[in-house]
């Protein structure tokens, strides 16, 4: 049974660290996804140029 209380012992640094780890994981993942999206965009541009080049030919 977990008992509620208003007293606040220390250890807030550990709590901050745990939530920062979570934040870092999410942000890291989003950053990787952003890099992939940028690569994908580059590939789309490349294919579009290729198609345009063929149309001109």
């Amino acid at each position: 049974m977990i008992i509620a209380s208003n007293t606040l012992p220390g250890d807030s640094g550990y709590v901050a660290a745990a939530y920062l780890v979570f934040l870092a994981i999410v942000l890291g993942y989003v950053a990787i996804m952003a890099i992939r999206a940028a690569r994908l965009e580059r590939d789309v541009v490349e294919i579009a140029e290729l198609v345009e080049g063929r149309e001109h030919e």
Binding site: I2, I3, A4, S5, N6, T7, L8, P9, G10, D11, S12, Y14, V15, A18, Y19, F22
Partner: peptide, 27 residues
């Protein structure tokens, strides 16, 4: 996380470190 910190009461035994529960266990 707002509920975990500002609504859920502080645990009498573990204090603020119990707040890790709201991110660790759901993960």
């Amino acid at each position: 996380f707002a509920l975990a910190f500002f609504y859920a009461p502080m645990d009498a035994d573990q204090g603020i470190s119990q707040k890790i529960f709201y991110v660790h266990v759901p993960m």
